[in-house]
């Protein structure tokens, strides 16, 4: 188990390094940063001053090392728009995104896993078809449109929930549903397939032959094995929600990092974009790592490799 963890941690560190290089390079590839910062009317002299000030005149590898060195110490530079450090800005916005994505994942799992199990128990029945319909809708509806419909029905028509802002937990309910619904189909289909396969396996027949009650067979013997691929998928979906909540955060006016990234890209606020990119990637890596470890705990066969 220790060996397994060391290996996974090493791989995660490698990925993080690669991502940091890409985050750094992508922005430099998008054009001359000094020119963009200076604006359209700037003189050549102004641009040169800016280049000097931000260290953009140094060779790329030195720029990268400076950025990384500061970043490791918690200094990701200053925003060009807000009078704040990038770190402070992120610290301010991150909790909102985490709450949103966390609730989104809870909603997705809470809906998809039971639906997948029930669909697998009665394949091709009306329950299965209903679940499939819900799933296909989730995949097919454009996220922003579904968000607007939620706002319209639950916010404006029924007046049950707030539709904009992030002051209370209630503000997060509609955005979380809108964000989580998109992940539901994949998780549901995978749970269904996994359960169907496991329920036809020899060890489930053995469990029946042992005279175990149905719920023990379903929830101990079957689900434990069927859930393994779902865990891996869910960790990736969670990562997607952290990074991909731009639309949801914008539609619902939640001050999270997705919203921040979108603002910063449109303002050429490159220290912020870089930092958000790196942060989301790191979250992604940590989530995948956690998913792997959780799987190893669930499936003893994975621990040896």
């Amino acid at each position: 188990m220790l060996n397994f963890m060391t290996k996974r941690l090493f791989v995660a560190a490698l990925v993080a390094f690669t991502v940091s290089v890409i985050a750094f390079s992508l922005l430099r590839l998008s054009g001359d940063l000094a020119t963009m910062i200076a604006g359209e009317d700037a003189s050549a002299q102004d641009i040169e001053i800016i280049r000097e000030q931000y260290g953009l005149n140094k060779p790329y590898h030195l720029q990268y090392l400076d950025w990384l060195g500061d970043g490791v110490q918690g200094d990701l530079g200053e925003s060009m728009f807000y009078p704040e450090e990038v770190t402070a800005l992120i610290k301010d916005r991150l909790p909102n995104t985490l709450t949103l994505a966390g609730l989104g994942v809870l909603f997705a799992m809470g809906l998809a896993i039971p639906m997948g199990v029930i669909a697998a128990l009665r394949p091709d029945s009306w329950v299965d078809r209903t679940a499939l319909t819900i799933a296909v809708l989730g995949q097919a509806l454009p996220g922003f449109w579904f968000a607007l419909m939620l706002m319209f029905v639950f916010g404006l028509f029924l007046r049950w929930l707030p539709i904009s802002g992030n002051e209370t937990l209630a503000h997060f309910i509609l955005p979380a549903i809108s964000l989580g619904y998109y992940s539901t189909p994949a998780v549901m289909r995978l749970t269904r397939t996994g359960m169907l396969e496991v329920l036809n396996s020899d060890y489930i027949r053995t469990a029946h032959a042992k005279g175990l009650p149905t719920f023990v067979i379903l929830f101990k013997h079957a689900l434990r094995n069927a859930i393994i691929p779902v865990v891996a998928l869910s960790s990736v979906q969670f990562g997607n929600m952290l990074g991909g909540s731009v639309v949801t955060e914008t539609v619902f006016q939640i001050q999270g990092i997705g919203h921040l990234a979108w603002e910063s890209i449109s303002r050429n606020d490159f220290p912020v974009v870089q930092a958000v990119l790196l942060l989301v990637a790191c979250f992604y890596i940590v989530l995948v790592l956690l998913g792997d470890l959780l799987n190893a705990w669930l499936d003893p066969r994975l621990r040896v490799t």
Partner: peptide
């Protein structure tokens, strides 16, 4: 059963 390789639950 016939198949000892798959008749026991791999997770327990």
């Amino acid at each position: 059963f016939q198949e000892p390789m798959t008749s026991l639950n791999p997770s327990f």
